[in-house]
Design a protein around this nucleic acid. Structure first.
Lengths: 234, 234
DNA sequence: CATCGGGCGGTATCATCGTTTACATGACGG
DNA sequence: CCGTCATGTAAACGATGATACCGCCCGATG
């Protein structure tokens, strides 16, 4: 029992290691077998297929993902947990790009449940938010929205890893989707609404002008709007 | 000249066709060569690599994508064009799942510019919106947000193609991200943009105030905003 | 206790794939 | 007329995913 199981685990770990080390996000069944000192038929006995091995690697990736989540979440503020969960998701993608794509990118004929289980994890966190009265839509609906958006920017960042250093896009996306999903009390909008409103009116004034104001008033208004718009920023 | 170019095109088309027909989203260089009646070295002469062929297929996919966009957009309402562009993107993903993943999923060592060019296309559409005063953030920032979200749900739908029949999640995501990116006038287009911008800033000033302005200045600004907001009204 | 049978792993091999080498042909310019 | 380049072919090489077949150990059974 434990013999074959530990062998399974060893092969999965070797496969995951080689996947992370490979430059083209691919693994060779031979190399995995050699790494654990067995022959290829044992791989096909244990996993049935190369795809079976990859599915197992993806599921094992979910275990690590879940462990990372369980280690950091569970404060008394479910909304804060949600935000931290988003950032943790991005960190996981940054540290395991190949494994991340294996887990969250559609693979034909895949039987891995990693993505579904991450979805369920997210639903659970959202249900806690709903219990706190912070959720505006159905948890599964919100989860689909959040997970898709999260995967979207994560893949964007993986394609251009330099972007991982700038939390701007990720946090922007995060706040956008959460501001829809959560109630007003739950929103942590670090984008200054006053500033955006001022910018919007500034643009509109430049475009169309305002007949209700004298030209001098409009000019002074524009300068005030600039001061408001640049107040909190560099 | 045209000979090699038409050969190139034929191989790309054959590769794209076989990619769409393959069950595992993979192609074989041999099969592509046989389909056009040439030997394998010509493939390596024309594309250098299998990856080169895939890059060419992805770029050709962009051509079809751009053609589809050019055929449908360009009304006089740039915001409506944006919404139609989102739906067109989803339709493209539904009809060409394998090609879509080739274009929008990160591939190591890929030199395809398909995704970047789609990004530029989106930026252009957003600049038209900004010229109409409907954009609240920088076009490139908005484009990154929109494209990532669009790719996110598109991949979600590709993983579970039954979801393509329900426009709910896609439109929800679309409205969420657009409601952040566009001004109020963009999502509810019949109102006077200047008036709504003034109303928005008025509300924000009442809520939070502006540290960049003196209290007297803020008071005068509020009265001006009221005049602007009620200018065109009955 | 002797024997049998089935899990468990190894050896050798196959089919296919991506890629390259070596060679053939045909056009074109000096 | 001949060399050079472009263009294409035939054949092969190494690596890969997958398999048919053989042996070994070990517990069950008479």
């Amino acid at each position: 029992m434990t013999g074959t199981d530990s062998l399974r685990a060893a092969m999965i770990e070797a496969a995951e290691h080689q996947l992370a080390a490979s430059s083209d996000h691919e693994i060779a069944t031979r190399a995995v077998c050699e790494a654990v000192g067995v022959s290829q038929p044992v791989l096909y006995r244990l996993f049935g297929d190369k795809r079976g091995l990859l599915d197992a690697v993806a599921d094992h990736g979910y275990e690590r993902y879940a462990a990372l989540k369980a280690a950091q979440e569970r404060t008394d503020d479910p909304v804060a947990d949600l935000l931290a969960g988003w950032d943790g998701h991005m960190a996981f993608a940054k540290e395991n790009p190949a494994l991340y794509q294996l887990m969250f990118t559609p693979r034909p004929w895949s039987r891995s449940t990693a993505r579904d289980r991450v979805f369920d994890l997210l639903v659970a966190a959202l249900v806690r938010c709903a219990a706190a009265g912070a959720l505006r839509v159905e948890p599964r609906t919100a989860a689909r929205l959040i997970l898709s958006a999260n995967v979207g920017i994560a893949l964007d960042h993986i394609a251009e890893p330099a972007l991982f250093d700038d939390p701007g896009p990720s946090h922007r996306m995060r706040d956008v989707v959460f501001s829809y999903v959560l109630t007003e009390t739950g929103v942590r909008n670090d984008a200054d609404p006053l500033r955006t409103a001022a910018l919007s009116l500034h643009a509109q004034l430049l475009l169309t002008g305002a007949e209700a104001l004298e030209p001098a008033e409009t000019a002074l208004l524009l300068r005030w709007l600039e001061r408001v718009a640049h107040s909190g920023r560099a």
